[in-house]
């Protein structure tokens, strides 16, 4: 009888430790740098007629960079999306952060400054991942 009581007591303690270890918490976080909706606004740009000076009104943001070149002027609008995920146990925390950066590029004629082409990056979907090992 005493042995059985001892066994139950041991089992209870193991359960308590297990519950403490598992219920510490999970973490989800999201960080967006610049507005990815610039891509949607860029669909209204008309290559061949839109002038560079009109871009600010259409996109409502300044370009991240402007690269004047011999055969083209290149404007870039960079944005990024990060998903942070964590499994917080008492003694060990596992965390994983996955980021995608993309740039919307707009090519313009170096002389007339008229937009020639808009390079819209493909839409990427990030997964929520907490396990920090493997690929």
């Amino acid at each position: 009888m005493a042995q059985m009581k001892n066994m139950f007591c041991r089992f209870g303690m193991i359960c308590i430790v297990g519950v403490f270890a598992l219920l510490s918490g999970c973490m989800w976080g999201r960080v967006k740098v610049n507005d990815p909706s610039v891509v949607d606004s860029a669909r209204s740009i008309k290559p061949g007629s839109t002038h560079i000076s009109e871009l600010e009104n259409i996109l409502k943001v300044q370009p991240t960079f402007r690269m004047p070149g011999k055969d083209m002027t290149l404007l870039g609008y960079t944005y990024s999306d990060t998903k942070n995920n964590g499994l917080m146990l008492i003694a060990v925390n596992f965390m994983r952060s996955t980021t995608v950066t993309d740039t919307l590029y707009i090519e313009a004629d170096p002389v007339t400054q008229i937009v020639r082409k808009v390079h819209i990056p493909p839409k990427r979907t990030l997964e929520w991942r907490f396990w920090p090992f493997g690929d």
């Binding site: 403490f20 270890a21 146990l89 008492i90 003694a91 060990v92 925390n93 596992f94 965390m95 994983r96 952060s97 996955t98 980021t99 995608v100 950066t101 990427r124 920090p132 090992f133």
Partner: peptide, 17 residues
């Protein structure tokens, strides 16, 4: 376990595609 604040294993990846 409470007093040992713990260890953290973290991974950051940018542009996995």
């Amino acid at each position: 376990a409470f007093f040992l604040d713990g260890c953290k294993i973290a991974r950051d990846q940018v542009n996995i595609h």
